[in-house]
């Protein structure tokens, strides 16, 4: 401890809420959890959709509408867009200055991804029910 300290606050109190001392651990952990979930989902989606390249609308709409496929698609959309938002957030935090721009860009990214994710999920639900 420095002998120049004149404040009664502890060093911990002064740094809490500043800098990186926010929700980093939870963010980091959720990126891992979502990435593990996306592994089987990505494999399933990539090959399922590749095997249906060039399908007529009736066939594709019927495939998406099947309960098993619809549920997996909605999970893929939810987990995938969450993972995308948290990944882009880190990229923005690393390369953009100042902090207020980081905040504004991340809010915009989350708004766009939320709208796109809901649009995709609603499309699946509309075909499925």
């Amino acid at each position: 401890m420095s002998d120049r300290q004149t404040r009664l606050q502890t060093p911990l109190r002064r740094v809490r809420g500043f800098g990186s001392a926010k929700n980093g651990t939870h963010h980091w952990w959720m990126q891992r959890v979502t990435s593990i979930a996306l592994l089987p989902l990505t494999l399933w989606f990539a090959f399922s959709i590749a095997a249906r390249a060039g399908d007529r609308w009736e066939v594709m709409a019927e495939w998406i509408a099947r309960p098993f496929n619809a549920v997996l698609l909605i999970v893929l959309i939810a987990v995938g867009f969450y993972h995308t938002a948290s990944g882009l957030q880190v990229v923005v935090e690393d390369y953009i200055r100042p902090d207020r721009s980081v905040m504004a860009i991340n809010m915009a990214i989350k708004a766009v991804l939320t709208l796109l994710g809901l649009l995709a999920a609603l499309s699946v639900i509309r075909l499925a029910v």
């Binding site: 609308w57 594709m60 698609l73 796109l116 995709a120 499309s123 699946v124 075909l127």
Partner: peptide, 12 residues
Amino acid sequence: LIFLVWFLAATA
């Protein structure tokens, strides 16, 4: 991901 959204929205 835009193409995933387009694919699903267009099918719907």
